[in-house]
Measured scan of single mutants.
Amino acid sequence: FIDQHRAALIARVTNVEWLLDALYGKVLTDEQYQAVRAEPTNPSKMRKLFSFTPAWNWTCKDLLLQALRESQSYLVEDLER
Rank of each mutant, 00 (worst) to 15 (best):
A67P: 04
A38M: 13
A8R: 08
Y24S: 10
E70A: 11
L23F: 03
L49V: 02
R12F: 04
T53H: 08
L19T: 01
T53G: 04
K26C: 10
R12G: 12
E80Q: 13
T41I: 03
L64H: 04
N57D: 15
N57P: 11
R37C: 11
R6Y: 09
E39C: 13
L49Y: 02
L65D: 06
S73K: 10
A38T: 06
L20D: 07
A22N: 13
V76R: 01
S73V: 07
Y33F: 10
N42I: 15
V27I: 08
Y33R: 11
F50L: 15
L23P: 04
V27S: 06
V27A: 11
G25C: 06
Q32D: 02
D78Q: 12
P43A: 13
Q34L: 10
W18A: 15
L19N: 04
K48N: 02
E80C: 09
H5Y: 10
V36Q: 02
T41A: 07
W58P: 15
K61C: 09
L63K: 10
L9Q: 00
I10R: 05
E39T: 03
I10F: 02
Q32H: 03
T41L: 02
W18D: 15
R69Q: 04
F52G: 00
Y74D: 15
P43Q: 14
T29N: 09
S71N: 15
G25V: 03
N42T: 09
F52K: 00
E31S: 10
P40Q: 08
K26W: 07
C60E: 15
Q32S: 05
L23N: 00
D30W: 10
D30H: 15
L23D: 00
D21T: 10
L23Y: 06
R6I: 08
D3T: 01
E39V: 02
Q32G: 04
L28P: 01
D21P: 00
A35D: 05
I10H: 03
E17Y: 05
N57G: 11
W58H: 15
S71T: 13
Q72S: 11
Q4P: 00
L20Y: 05
S73L: 13
L28C: 01
L68N: 06
T53W: 10
I10W: 03
E77I: 07
W18S: 15
E39G: 04
N42G: 09
V16Q: 01
F1V: 01
W56R: 06
A35S: 13
S73G: 14
A38D: 11
S51E: 14
V16I: 07
C60K: 14
Y74V: 14
E17K: 07
K48F: 06
A8H: 09
Q72A: 11
S51M: 10
T14V: 08
L68P: 06
V36S: 09
N57M: 08
A55W: 08
Q32F: 02
W58L: 15
R69A: 06
G25M: 08
F52A: 03
R6H: 05
R12K: 11
A7K: 13
L9K: 00
L68E: 01
Q4C: 08
R47T: 13
A67M: 08
T53M: 14
R69G: 03
F50S: 02
Q32A: 01
A22K: 15
I10P: 00
S44N: 07
W58F: 15
I10S: 00
K45D: 00
L65Y: 13
L63D: 03
D3I: 03
K26D: 07
Y74R: 14
T14Q: 11
R69E: 10
Y33K: 09
E80D: 12
A35V: 09
Q34K: 12
T29E: 08
T41C: 10
R37A: 14
D3E: 08
K61Q: 05
T59M: 13
V13T: 14
D30T: 11
Y24F: 06
D78L: 12
V36N: 02
Q72M: 06
V27K: 00
L49G: 03
D62V: 05
L63P: 08
D62C: 10
R69K: 14
D30R: 11
F52E: 00
Q72R: 04
Q34T: 10
V16M: 08
T41K: 03
L49C: 00
L9I: 08
L20T: 13
L63E: 10
S73E: 11
E80R: 07
S44E: 14
L68Y: 03
E70M: 07
S44M: 14
L63G: 01
L64C: 07
E31I: 06
E39N: 10
H5G: 02
L63A: 12
A7G: 12
D62Q: 13
Q34R: 14
K61F: 15
L28M: 03
V36F: 06
V16A: 03
P43R: 13
E77M: 11
D78H: 14
N57Q: 03
W56Y: 00
K61E: 09
R6T: 06
L49W: 01
Q32V: 01
S51V: 03
F1E: 03
T41P: 02
P40D: 09
Y33M: 12
L75G: 04
T59Y: 13
E31V: 08
V13R: 02
S51A: 08
A7V: 11
H5T: 05
W56M: 13
D21V: 06
P54T: 14
G25R: 08
F1L: 02
L19E: 01
N57F: 10
K48C: 04
R37H: 11
V16L: 07
M46W: 04
L79N: 04
N15D: 12
L79G: 01
V13L: 05
R47N: 11
N15V: 00
L23I: 06
